[in-house]
């Protein structure tokens, strides 16, 4: 018979939250200014993000934004009082785990349609999964947040699954 670890890092109240919306949906107008600042900070000077003519030549109806930028276009400003000692914003309903810290573990993107400067996009984040695993450095928790981005007409333009590793 296999010996199964009975120590759970995931409180029952957290496990019960799988599938729930992590925050109310956010709607923004994606701006060229925000997109270009992001592209410059990444070091990605592709002209389709900066120049209307280059975007047309590449087959887009207007300037597009870097594929992963949509996630940052939707980040909401928060007051300084909402920032914890580590500098991270404290959520209204943080995901409670019996762990010391959470690291960014990776991401899985589907790009369904391009996002253009000026598009109105709504993002909806759900807690997609929470699993405890046994790694070489001991047990850890894998948290998957799935965010779906849609146009005002309701068409999905992108979807991402952000993986957090907590231990």
């Amino acid at each position: 018979m296999r010996v199964v670890s009975t120590t759970s890092l995931i409180p029952a109240e957290t496990a019960a939250r799988v599938g729930e919306l992590l925050a109310p949906p956010v709607t923004v107008t994606v701006t060229a200014e925000g997109s270009q600042r992001y592209a410059q900070a990444v070091g990605d000077l592709n002209p389709i993000y900066f120049d209307e003519t280059a975007a047309h030549a590449a087959g887009y109806r207007t300037m597009v934004v870097p594929p992963t930028y949509v996630a940052y276009a939707l980040v909401q400003g928060r007051p300084l009082g909402d920032i914890g000692i580590d500098g991270l914003f404290v959520g209204d309903k943080p995901i409670r785990l019996e762990v010391a810290r959470i690291m960014f573990g990776g991401e899985e993107w589907d790009f369904v349609a391009p996002v253009h400067a000026g598009d109105v996009i709504t993002g909806e984040a759900r807690l997609a999964a929470i699993d405890q695993k046994d790694g070489s450095k001991g047990p850890f928790v894998r948290i998957t947040r799935e965010i779906t981005y849609r146009t005002a007409a309701g068409e999905v333009v992108a979807r991402t699954r952000q993986i957090g590793i907590a231990r």
Binding site: P66, P67, W109
Partner: peptide, 18 residues
Amino acid sequence: SQYVTDWAGPAGRMRSLQ
């Protein structure tokens, strides 16, 4: 992402990345 889109050229479209 940029590594892929720069390689894919202006007519390329990245459909997924993980």
